[in-house]
């Protein structure tokens, strides 16, 4: 059954059409990458799915339910976890506190006045941190972590909502190359074992071709190609407008590595 479906999404900013008739579908456990040059409308598309932007036209459905234009907090409650291009965490909290906060919100306990927040959901939070490999850093203030580790914690925060769908806007932006592939492998593993759909945008072609099940290529707000990594790799139009030589080489490398 389709987990997420976008149908004919349109968004204009003044005279600029940032998204023009964007449609796609995503199944549980599937990793769908949106790629495209800067300004192609990737983040716009993303924000229309996540509730940060309301589309001018079109529909977004999650497991058949219309979620077009509802606010992010409501999208979250329907089982959508989200990470941002620039990691968004609670800077004054510890690593553990960040995940505990997400769990408190997930359990609808944010209005409790007398419980001790630091004692709530400790074990669950530690388990989530363990899954992203950050349990050893649990007690540290999140502001002290390296950026790659912050991104991992942000993933744990997103997972705290027990999501059916993860929205990851450039999950590896700002990370070192070695950290990138480790993070993407982690996300792919979690997605497949727990049947979580992942929609992500990415500039790192190695990460895209190694981990995406399907790829959408967005240029100037329009989808110019879609398909499996092999199909997109072979598309002459994509090679011309976007991948260029280095992108094509990355696609070749991924092909050799993953057979």
């Amino acid at each position: 059954m389709t987990l997420l479906a976008a149908e004919g999404l349109v968004k204009r900013f003044g005279g600029v059409v940032a998204a023009k008739d964007v449609s796609f579908a995503l199944d549980p456990g599937e990793m769908l990458a949106i790629i495209g040059p800067n300004g192609a409308g990737k983040t716009t598309t993303f924000n229309m799915v996540g509730g940060q932007l309301r589309p001018d036209a079109g529909r977004v459905t999650l497991a058949g339910q219309d979620i077009t234009g509802i606010p992010p907090r409501a999208v979250c409650r329907l089982g959508v976890g989200r990470t941002f291009q620039v990691a968004q965490t609670f800077l004054s909290f510890t690593v553990l506190g960040n995940v505990q906060m997400a769990l408190i919100a997930h359990h609808g306990q944010t209005r409790r006045l007398l419980a001790d927040a630091a004692a709530l959901h400790r074990d669950d939070a530690l388990a989530l941190l363990d899954r992203v490999g950050m349990a050893a850093q649990a007690a540290r203030p999140i502001g002290e972590l390296a950026y790659g580790d912050v991104k991992r914690v942000e993933l744990a925060i997103a997972l705290a909502a027990a999501p059916r769908l993860l929205l990851m806007d450039e999950p590896t932006a700002g990370m070192a190359p070695s950290e990138r592939s480790a993070l993407m492998a982690l996300v792919a593993g979690i997605a497949r074992t727990e049947r979580i759909g992942v929609l992500f945008t990415e500039h790192d072609m190695d990460a895209v071709f190694a981990h995406a099940d399907r790829i959408l290529v967005l240029v100037r707000g329009e989808i110019i190609a879609r398909g499996t990594p092999a199909e997109v790799r072979a598309d002459p139009e994509v090679q011309r407008v976007y991948l260029g030589h280095s992108g094509t080489r990355a696609a070749e490398r991924a092909k050799r590595a993953h057979g």
């Binding site: 907090r73 979250c76 941002f84 609670f90 906060m101 919100a105 997930h106 944010t110 927040a117």
Partner: peptide
């Protein structure tokens, strides 16, 4: 309590608080 922590969380990052 969770309520106070939620206010601090919203202060740190309203966007993140919204997304959880």
């Amino acid at each position: 309590a969770p309520f106070g922590a939620t206010l601090r969380a919203a202060r740190d990052s309203a966007q993140r608080a919204d997304a959880i």
